[in-house]
Design a protein around this nucleic acid. Sequence first.
DNA 1: AAAGGCGCCAACCGCGTAGCT
DNA 2: CAGCTACGCGGTTGGCGCCTT
Length: 350
Amino acid sequence: MGRAPCCVKNGLKKGPWTSEEDKKLIDYIHEHGYGNWRTLPKNAGLQRCGKSCRLRWTNYLRPDIKRGKFSFEEEETIIQLHGILGNKWSTIATCLPGRTDNEIKNYWNTHIRKKLLRMGIDPVSHSPCLDLIFNQPCQMKLSRLLLGMQALDNAELLKLANYLFSSSQQQNNPYFFHQNQNQESQLFINAVVSKGMTPFLQSTQFQTPFEEIKPPSFIPFSGDGKIVQSDLQNLSSNFDNFSNQNSHSNELEFHLPIQDYGNQQGCFSHYVMDYPPPSETTTFQSNNSTYLTYQSILTNLSTPSSSSAPPNSNSTSTAYVRDGFTLEDEKESYCSGIVKFEIPDVLDIN
DNA sequence: AAAGGCGCCAACCGCGTAGCT
DNA sequence: CAGCTACGCGGTTGGCGCCTT
C-alpha cells in the first residue's frame, strides 16, 4: 500500500489566488510550517490541491523571495550557468538567492533568450547562430563567428578574424558573407567542428588552406598565443583601411577568448567599436563626462584595472563608453554604435 | 477612443523520481 | 521487492495589462 492520493481534483479551485486564500496559506504555514502538502489545504481551509498550495508558496508567498527587476549581475550569472547547466532552472535558482526557478525560467524565456538571439547567439548551445549571422544585412559581425570558437587560442582567432576581413576586402564588398551565406555557413561549421582549421576553406572560390592565406593586408600577429597591443592596433588599422574603401557604416565586434580558460563560458574579451572606426583623436564622453580618445582606449587595454568597470563585476573589468548614453543604457543595449571593452582581469595583454 | 497585437508572468500540466507501505 | 503516490521539476498555457495602429 502506497501513500494516499494527493487530492481529489473535483471541486477544487483553480486559477489565480485571492488575497484571502493567500492569507489563509500564510497564516497556516506560519503556525504549522510547510510540508505534507497533501493535507495542508484541507487543514488550512483552502479549496486547493496541495500542488497548487506548494507552488503558490514557493513561487510567490515565501518571505525570502526577492522581487523586482533582475540585476545585471544576476542576468550574467543566469547566462553563464545556463551555458553550463542548460535548462536546470532549479539548480540555477540555488545560485541566485531569493529567485525562484519559475521566475528565472520566465525571465530567460522573455528577456535573455531574445537578447541572445538578437546578438546572433543560439540560446540553447550558446554558440553563434549561423543562420542568424549570415542572414543579417551586414555580415561583419565577427564576434558572432568567434564567440563559439573559444577553444581556439588567441593567435588563431586573430588570424581568423583577419582572414575573414581580408576575404571581404578581396571581394571589395562588405556584404560578401551575405552573398555567400550558404557556403560560408558550411565552412564555419566545418571549421568549428574540426577546430584544427585545416583545411579551412573548401569552397570553389577559395581552395587555399587557412594557414596559407597571405592577402596583402595580412597582419603579422605575435603568434605565441597571446594578444599584444600592437596586434589590436594592427587589426583596427586594417579595418580602417577597409572603411576607407567602403562608405558603409556599421559596428565591429571582436571576442577574443582567453586561452587559459578553454571552453569555459564567458572567458573572452569583447571589443566593439564604431564602424568605420574612430580616428586617434576621436573623443568619447562617458556618463561621468570623462573624455577618452580612441588611442587612450587602446592604451586602456594594457591597464584593465584602471578602466571604469561597473561595480560587482568580479570576472571582468568593463569600460562602457558612448557619447550621450548612460551606463544603464549601455547595459540594456549590449551593443550598437558603441565602443565597449570587456577586459577580463586574467587576460594576458602585454 | 477602440480594437487588435504583444509581452509578461502566475499558474497549471505532465512526467520522472524518491519514498512509503 | 513491487506497487503506488507525493513531490519536484521543466514545459506550457492563459489571462491581464500595456502598446500600437
